[in-house]
Amino acid sequence: MSETVSLTYGSEEGDFYMQHIKRTEPFERTNHFHGTYEIYYLLSGQRAYFIKDRTYLISPGDLVFINRHDVHKTSDVGQPGHERVVINFSDTFIGKDHPLSDPSLFNVFRQPAHVLSLKLQDQIFTQTIIGKLHKELKEKATGFETYIRLLLVELLLFSSRYAERNDAVVFEHASPLHKKISEIVQHINCHYQQPMTLSGMSEQFYMSPYYMSRTFKEITGFTFIEYVNMTRIREAQKLLRETDRKIIDIADAVGFENIAHFGRMFKKLSKQTPHEYRKHQR
C-alpha cells in the first residue's frame, strides 16, 4: 500500500481540517492555494516546499506556516516516502469574534521565513499537541470541538513565541539557479496582468525556453503556464470577493484576453464558476 492515513477530519476549505498520512511512494501535492491557514509538520522523509516565490528544503521536525491564499506545493526530494501532519483552519474558527482570538496568534503566518526548524525538546512538545488533537478528533468526546480550539491556540502561541526567540536564519537560495527562478516567480507575481509567454520571459531572463521550462518545473513544482494561470485566477478570486466589478472586467484585469478561457481556468482551479465563487463568498 502506497499510503497509510491515520486521520482525516473535516475539509481543507472548511473551518477545521487535520490529516495525518504516511506515504511510501512518490507524491506531488495537487492543491495550490486556499482560503484557510495551513500548518504543516514533517515527521519523516524530506520534502521540497515551494511557498509564494521560493523553495525550502523541509526536514523532520520542521513546522511550516502558510498564510491564506499563498501559493504552495510540495514535492519529493531524494528517496520518495514521507510522513506528515497538515492542519487547516479558517478565520472564523478562532477569528476576531472568538473569545480565544488574539492577533499575536497569527504573527507566525506573517513572518518572512515560512519554516521553523524545531529543537528536539520543541519537537516533542509539538508532537504532544498533535497527539492530543489526533485523540480528540478520533474519539469526539463531549466538548472536543472546544478542546481542539484550545490546542490549536496553544500550538500557535508556542510557534509565535518560538519564532520571536529564535531569530529566523536569513533565507539563502539553494543555488544561483534557484535564485533566478525565484526572480522569475516574483516578476510573474507583480506583472501577471501583462501578456506573458515562455519565450518572452526566457529572453528577458537570459535563458533558453527549454532550459527555463525544465528548471521552472523542477524548482517550483509547476509548469510556467500553470503558475501564470494560477496567479491570475488567485487575483481574480480576490477581486470577486472584494469588489463588485463585472466578471468580464475582472478577467481582463488579471490578464486573460479571452473570457471563455478565463471561465475554463477558473472552474478548473476553483471547482466553481466565477458566479458561483462570488455568491459563496458573499
Rank of each mutant, 00 (worst) to 15 (best):
I124K: 08
R47Y: 01
V5C: 14
K279T: 11
L116W: 00
L105T: 00
Q127T: 13
P112Q: 06
E172A: 08
E226R: 02
S90C: 05
L116A: 02
Y192K: 02
F27C: 04
K271C: 05
F256E: 10
Q193I: 05
L151I: 07
Q204H: 13
K132C: 11
Y49I: 10
I94V: 15
L269Y: 15
I148M: 03
H34P: 04
S104E: 15
R54Q: 05
H178F: 11
I233A: 04
L157N: 14
Q123G: 07
Q204P: 03
R278I: 04
D91N: 10
E257P: 00
R161F: 07
F93Q: 07
E235R: 10
N189Q: 12
V85D: 03
S270K: 10
E203W: 04
F50P: 01
I58A: 09
S90N: 06
L137E: 02
F89M: 07
K238F: 12
V185C: 08
R29G: 13
L43N: 11
G61F: 03
R278L: 00
R278W: 05
V85T: 10
M230V: 06
S44Q: 13
A141F: 01
M212C: 12
K179A: 15
T55Y: 01
P195W: 02
F50M: 04
L150Y: 11
G81S: 05
G255R: 14
F171D: 06
D62K: 01
K179Y: 07
Y211R: 09
E276M: 08
R68E: 09
E172F: 02
T146L: 12
M196T: 09
R161E: 09
F33K: 02
I247W: 03
R29C: 04
I148S: 01
F144Y: 15
K217I: 01
R84P: 00
S182R: 08
K140Q: 15
L240I: 03
F109Q: 00
